[in-house]
Computed example of a mutant assay.
Amino acid sequence: MSFLWAIIAGLIIGLLAKLVVPGRQPIPLWLTILVGIVGALVGNALAVAVGVRDTAGVDWIRHIFQVGVAAVLVAFVSPLWVRRNS
């Protein structure tokens, strides 16, 4: 069941990251999910390192880290994907 939640979280975080990055990112959905999952894992590790992983209420700072890392990954992967497929 946790594998399914990782895919759902990766999809949401990946789509939010694509919204944050300006311009069009022609990467497929599976790559968006993969980038979102990696962004979630790295964002969690970053939140633990900073000491803000567990807060009272919604962990907004952790989610901002997750989407931020995923946005950096989308900005990095998107041009590589375009070059690969042209």
Rank of each mutant, 00 (worst) to 15 (best):
G10V: 03
P79Q: 03
S78L: 03
L73V: 04
W60K: 01
A45G: 15
T55Q: 00
P26M: 11
V69S: 08
V67Y: 13
L31R: 06
L80E: 08
L29F: 13
V58A: 06
V77Y: 08
A17W: 00
I13T: 06
W81D: 03
L15V: 09
L11N: 08
M1N: 09
G68E: 02
L11Q: 01
I61A: 03
V74Y: 13
V38M: 09
V38G: 08
G23I: 11
Q66D: 09
K18H: 06
L15E: 15
A17I: 00
F76L: 13
A40V: 05
W30I: 02
I27C: 02
H63T: 10
P28T: 15
V50H: 06
V82N: 15
P22Y: 10
I61R: 08
L11F: 12
L29N: 15
V20D: 03
I64D: 04
V72M: 09
F3W: 11
V38N: 00
P22C: 13
P79C: 01
L19I: 05
I13L: 10
L46E: 09
G57A: 04
G68I: 01
I7E: 14
F65N: 04
F76C: 04
A45R: 06
V52C: 07
A9N: 11
N44C: 09
I61D: 13
N44Q: 08
P22S: 12
L80G: 06
A6C: 13
M1V: 06
A71I: 01
F76I: 13
D59Y: 09
A49V: 11
P28N: 15
D59L: 12
I33F: 10
G36K: 02
D59H: 14
A70E: 06
V48Q: 15
L29T: 13
I33N: 01
W81L: 10
D59V: 11
I13W: 04
L34T: 11
P22F: 06
W5E: 15
P79D: 08
V35M: 03
L73P: 02
V52W: 00
A40S: 13
G23C: 07
F65E: 07
A45T: 04
I33R: 08
L41R: 10
R24V: 13
G51T: 00
R24Q: 11
I61M: 01
R24N: 10
A49N: 06
Q66K: 14
G43K: 01
N85I: 12
R24A: 02
I64L: 02
R83S: 13
V48H: 13
G10S: 07
P22N: 10
V35A: 10
F65Q: 01
V21Y: 02
G68V: 12
L31E: 03
I27N: 03
L80M: 14
Q66R: 14
G23D: 11
G36F: 02
G14F: 07
I33V: 15
G68M: 03
L15I: 13
V35D: 07
V72F: 07
F65T: 03
N85Q: 11
T32K: 02
V50M: 05
I12G: 14
F3E: 07
V48T: 12
V48S: 06
I64R: 15
W5R: 14
V58D: 10
L15A: 14
A71Y: 08
F76Q: 05
T32V: 05
L46C: 14
V72K: 00
A17F: 04
R84V: 07
R62K: 11
I37G: 03
L4A: 09
A49W: 14
V77W: 05
I64E: 05
G43R: 02
G14K: 14
I33L: 10
G39P: 04
A17R: 09
L41H: 12
